[in-house]
Design a protein around this nucleic acid. Sequence first.
DNA 1: CGCGGGGTTGAATGCCGTCAATTGAAGTGG
DNA 2: CCACTTCAATTGACGGCATTCAACCCCGCG
Lengths: 257, 257
Amino acid sequence: MDKKISTAVAENATERRHSCEACPLRPLPVFRAFEPEELEFVSHFKRGELAVDRGATVLVEGNSSPHLYTVLSGWGFRFKLLSDGRRQILNYIMPGDLIGLQGTIMGEMQHSVEALSGLVLCVFERGKLMELYSRHPGLAYDITWLASREERMLDENLLSIGRRSAIERAAYLLAFIHERARASGLAARSRVAIPVTQQHIADTLGLSLVHTNKTLRKLVQRGMIEWRDGGCEVVDLDGLLRLSGWEGLDEGKRPLV
Amino acid sequence: MDKKISTAVAENATERRHSCEACPLRPLPVFRAFEPEELEFVSHFKRGELAVDRGATVLVEGNSSPHLYTVLSGWGFRFKLLSDGRRQILNYIMPGDLIGLQGTIMGEMQHSVEALSGLVLCVFERGKLMELYSRHPGLAYDITWLASREERMLDENLLSIGRRSAIERAAYLLAFIHERARASGLAARSRVAIPVTQQHIADTLGLSLVHTNKTLRKLVQRGMIEWRDGGCEVVDLDGLLRLSGWEGLDEGKRPLV
DNA sequence: CGCGGGGTTGAATGCCGTCAATTGAAGTGG
DNA sequence: CCACTTCAATTGACGGCATTCAACCCCGCG
């Protein structure tokens, strides 16, 4: 349980920004179409962009987040720590995900967020959230929708950690990440290189590093995944689904705020 | 892992209803004050009441929930099942909690809800939710707040199941339930009788029934809890907090929709 | 070339699960 | 009122899955 927690905290917002009207994410089939006036407000809501290095901490537990972010590109994860350093990864973060809502709405972050790869975030101003709720009920509804979706994913993860065996858990997790990543446009040629170490997987599954390694090895031997240069690739999605007894991701279109 | 899942599903909404203006819950110190027009809308939003018997299933995974509910009185729990019957309890439900939001917002419930005691629910119409978002941004914000709070609780539970030992988990869980129950007005004389079986605790902690029993026995021997006539009482809250390394519930006032 | 991070493996320990059986309380029907 | 059943709690024995300890390898980097 020896973790190195990176201490660099992301700070500088760059000025260079993608216009919301030409958002590279929005054309993806997973995102629902927006009305012109919604798009216009989101554009107005957006304050700038934040580029975060791999390994940097984006949000820190205990801080009150000054901003709300939408992931434009890259990977990250949410996690919590116990006082003795044990770490639990709560969920992974991918393009289109909204982060920092807890801090914005409830005043203080109860978890931290770290970048798994270079990460580009759209920065929204906390103060304008009430204006969004007042003037664009549709967008407000979307934000609740996203919060509800996060809850749904957490429910799944909780079920998995609580009730599945080690190998089932690993199979579920990798299938889950793979599916989400594909839907978020992180797939190059239908293959997805998941940029995690086995320590990340271990801290997500609630297992030790050693046992995680042995479990992953079994998945490799069964030809379901491959492990290469600091990452993981799912080879046999159906196999993972069968092994874990998971139905697969069944999301329709989602909003992109 | 032998579970009996009750099959009775709650059906009939009674006409008898508490007026929202004279809501027995709202005066509690945990709930934030509402503006008169908010109260008026909630009253208009409310459609009736639903009384649910102990053991009955309120919401079923896979169904699209026709309604949204706020718990007026009683205890319940949210859970998910694996196809082979393994059950994971996700969270407990107490007065003031909003349930069925997932089904309302995302179209289909991804978890089930069962009553631990007799339960009285305020029934809200799904169709009027958009109207709420349009006409009362403050209430819309409150609903997002509540969804965010649920996410926060799930994060804590995930941390606990993933990274705490059996006895730490049990200590955390009972302290958590105790704290929430006290804040929700479920305490008679500062003592709280938690109406669960050890099977419920086991399915929450992700442990077997036998090992849960042995773990709870240790907590009893340490004088931290008592187990009596189908329920549990926390005797030494500080002891549980110390054992689990949990900071305790730190919620300010919350909205009551 | 030494060092550190990440991955891999074997051995020993132990926490937790499974099996099995008992107790006591509460309900049911005769 | 008493067999009979059922459910919840309890306890002991045993086995196994997962943790811990301890190496070792590979590779990129200063």
